[in-house]
Amino acid sequence: MLRQILSLGVLLTTAIAAPAAAQGFNLTSTTVSEGETLTNTHVFAGFGCEGENQSPQLSWTGAPADTKSFAINVYDPDAPTGSGWWHWNVVNLPASTNSIGQNASLNNGLPSAAIEIRNDYGTIGFGGACPPPGEVHRYTFTVYALGTAQLDLPENPSNALVGFMIRANMLDSASLTAVYHR
């Protein structure tokens, strides 16, 4: 009988704790799905690619209570550069932000305080997928909860410096990874 009561107690504790553990910082999108192939909407227009070059819709929940701002980046670790490829870096999104709409890049819906960094195509804003022909690349979309309201960045910072500053101030992060090939 005591064993059954203890077992019931463990089951109840696990059932109560499981939803709390499952919650946390989470990133979702209505336009990009984990493990799925990106659509032409999120493909670059240039470098031999003929996409619409629109940034995706992104939503996040469960950020730490002491979050003071957010940053977003899109990174391709498979680019044949030795250092990957930065497709998008946005910093200084206010802590009140919990989503951005599709095609929000270049002042089409980002909060006014947000700053977009020059991507590895050499342009400001979102630069969509465009891997070399015949290669499948991963595109990791990450939202970072930061403990500072603004990142202290010089004018025209490199993506490596932005990544360093994001991680130096990061409280938590949430990601999803899609793929693309041509």
Rank of each mutant, 00 (worst) to 15 (best):
residue 1 M to E: 13
residue 2 L to K: 15
residue 2 L to S: 13
residue 4 Q to T: 09
residue 6 L to P: 00
residue 6 L to K: 10
residue 7 S to M: 09
residue 9 G to V: 13
residue 9 G to S: 15
residue 11 L to A: 14
residue 14 T to C: 14
residue 14 T to W: 07
residue 15 A to T: 13
residue 16 I to L: 15
residue 16 I to M: 14
residue 18 A to D: 03
residue 18 A to Q: 08
residue 18 A to Y: 15
residue 20 A to S: 07
residue 20 A to N: 08
residue 21 A to S: 10
residue 23 Q to W: 09
residue 23 Q to H: 12
residue 23 Q to D: 13
residue 24 G to P: 06
residue 26 N to Y: 01
residue 27 L to D: 04
residue 27 L to E: 07
residue 28 T to Q: 12
residue 29 S to R: 10
residue 29 S to Q: 11
residue 34 E to T: 13
residue 34 E to I: 05
residue 35 G to Y: 08
residue 36 E to P: 00
residue 38 L to P: 09
residue 40 N to P: 00
residue 41 T to Q: 15
residue 41 T to L: 11
residue 42 H to N: 14
residue 42 H to R: 11
residue 50 E to A: 13
residue 50 E to K: 10
residue 50 E to L: 08
residue 50 E to M: 06
residue 51 G to V: 10
residue 51 G to C: 06
residue 51 G to K: 08
residue 52 E to F: 12
residue 53 N to H: 12
residue 53 N to W: 12
residue 53 N to K: 14
residue 55 S to K: 09
residue 56 P to D: 04
residue 58 L to Q: 02
residue 58 L to Y: 01
residue 59 S to I: 05
residue 59 S to Y: 01
residue 60 W to S: 03
residue 60 W to Y: 00
residue 61 T to P: 02
residue 62 G to E: 01
residue 67 T to P: 01
residue 68 K to M: 10
residue 68 K to S: 12
residue 70 F to L: 04
residue 70 F to V: 05
residue 77 P to M: 14
residue 80 P to L: 13
residue 81 T to K: 12
residue 84 G to P: 07
residue 87 H to C: 14
residue 88 W to E: 13
residue 88 W to T: 09
residue 90 V to P: 03
residue 91 V to W: 04
residue 91 V to C: 06
residue 92 N to R: 04
residue 92 N to D: 15
residue 95 A to R: 09
residue 95 A to W: 03
residue 96 S to I: 02
residue 97 T to L: 06
residue 98 N to H: 08
residue 99 S to Q: 14
residue 102 Q to C: 02
residue 103 N to K: 13
residue 103 N to G: 10
residue 105 S to I: 02
residue 105 S to N: 15
residue 106 L to E: 08
residue 107 N to L: 07
residue 109 G to L: 08
residue 111 P to L: 12
residue 111 P to R: 10
residue 114 A to N: 01
residue 115 I to Q: 10
residue 118 R to A: 09
residue 118 R to I: 15
residue 120 D to V: 09
residue 120 D to S: 06
residue 121 Y to M: 07
residue 121 Y to G: 00
residue 122 G to I: 04
residue 124 I to A: 05
residue 127 G to L: 06
residue 129 A to R: 08
residue 129 A to Q: 08
residue 130 C to K: 11
residue 130 C to F: 09
residue 131 P to T: 13
residue 134 G to F: 11
residue 136 V to R: 15
residue 136 V to D: 13
residue 138 R to M: 05
residue 141 F to T: 06
residue 142 T to Q: 07
residue 145 A to Q: 07
residue 145 A to C: 03
residue 146 L to Y: 00
residue 147 G to S: 13
residue 147 G to V: 08
residue 148 T to Y: 00
residue 148 T to I: 14
residue 150 Q to C: 00
residue 151 L to K: 06
residue 152 D to K: 11
residue 153 L to D: 02
residue 153 L to Y: 03
residue 153 L to W: 04
residue 155 E to C: 01
residue 156 N to C: 00
residue 156 N to K: 08
residue 157 P to V: 07
residue 157 P to K: 08
residue 158 S to M: 08
residue 159 N to W: 04
residue 164 F to V: 11
residue 165 M to H: 05
residue 166 I to D: 02
residue 167 R to N: 15
residue 167 R to H: 07
residue 168 A to K: 12
residue 171 L to R: 01
residue 171 L to V: 01
residue 173 S to W: 00
residue 175 S to D: 01
residue 175 S to M: 02
residue 176 L to D: 01
residue 177 T to M: 05
residue 178 A to M: 06
